[in-house]
Design a protein around this nucleic acid. Structure first.
Lengths: 198, 198
DNA sequence: CGGCAGTTTGACCAACATCAAGTTGGGTGG
DNA sequence: CCACCCAACTTGATGTTGGTCAAACTGCCG
């Protein structure tokens, strides 16, 4: 679906993954969010799509016609509360990303993304998040750039630099190992200790 | 309030203005949002402040203890629906800003901000948004930079460039006139026509 | 063995940041 | 009333980062 399209339904992602993005008239593209199982597309009270939505894997959706769904939200408080909690979480993610896009260097952006994806994949597979963490990057260099506000060349160069610095190990172009998680986190620009004082 | 503080209440802004921001350990700061009258601070179901919140003018808040408020949200569906609509709007704003931070040039960032502030001030004063629009910048060059992910010097240089190009007229450092709104919009990088095809 | 998409690398360049002076204008104290 | 002070802003010189353009390289598939 593309920005401005009429949207006659809302939906919940059941399987697969999709992404939200927006494109400027001259073609510059920024990815705005990732839709994973349980995430919600569309919103009560708005009939146009606000951003481009594209599947990045085969996706199964659970769709509801918009009007009946809006009624259901009004009559079933619990649904509204759930939607509120989800949209507040998305807001946190979006703001975290604003910090990254506005102020972080290319190297910090890349390490943030690697840490994020590594942790999420490990958690998904019920693996501990420790040194030696190993995973497949689910997205291309191009998609990394679109996510981070960088060009593909800069992404590639930073990956090479991180490899040469021993922060990551790379096999092929997608297989990543993180020998020392603390080393990676130290490059993200964030608090390493979760923000605790002393 | 600062990131990580315990928050025993939620609040609605009645008068004045505040801003949301986050700071990296080394001091880099990114503004994440603006709180104006009717905006909401805090959230049901979360007891820590997620971002720094600072008043930028004298502010009056309407505060509610968090626990009773959470109960009220559960028992009064209409409140939850209103909060949902507000947080979805904030999400749109945040994502619009991600596009700006990730992909726009300094000149585009500045013109976007000027257009945004000009239009909001005009609307607030019930003035038509037309050529010759004139207003006072409510924020300093530094704050503009924090909002746009730029340094103060770059902000200043771009303002000078826009003045020399006749896109804006400047009196003192805060008073702005926009002789031709279309000229300004043409510099934002966005669709000038609101995205309509033909 | 091509052909091709995805990736890497190199050379060069533009945009923005950084560092360092100025400049302006409003407020204060002599 | 004037001199000076200070914060906010502007301007200049220079440095870095990341973008751009172009050319290889890789691995996979037909």
């Amino acid at each position: 679906m593309f920005e401005g399209d009429e949207m006659h339904f809302v939906a919940s992602v059941v399987t697969g993954a999709a992404r939200l993005s927006r494109t400027l008239p001259d073609g510059r593209l920024q990815m705005l969010g990732l839709l994973l199982p349980s995430d919600f597309i569309g919103r009560p009270g708005r009939d146009k799509v606000a951003y481009d939505v594209e599947a990045i894997q085969d996706v199964t959706l659970c769709c509801f016609r918009r009007k009946p769904f809006e009624q259901m939200v009004e009559t079933t408080p619990h649904i509204g509360q759930r939607l509120l909690a989800m949209s507040l979480d998305e807001l946190d993610v979006a703001r975290e990303w604003m910090m990254l896009l506005g102020r972080k260097t290319a190297r910090e952006k890349i390490t943030c993304l690697l840490a994020l994806i590594g942790q999420r994949i490990a958690t998904l597979h019920l693996q501990p998040v420790t040194d030696g963490l190993s995973f497949e990057m689910p997205i291309s260099r191009e998609a990394m750039g679109e996510y981070l506000g960088l060009t593909i060349e800069t992404v590639s160069r930073q990956m090479t630099a991180l490899r040469k610095d021993g922060i990551i190990e790379v096999k092929g172009s997608r297989s990543i190992t993180i020998p020392d998680l603390a080393d990676l986190m130290a490059e993200t620009g964030d608090d390493t200790d979760g923000g605790m004082l002393i």
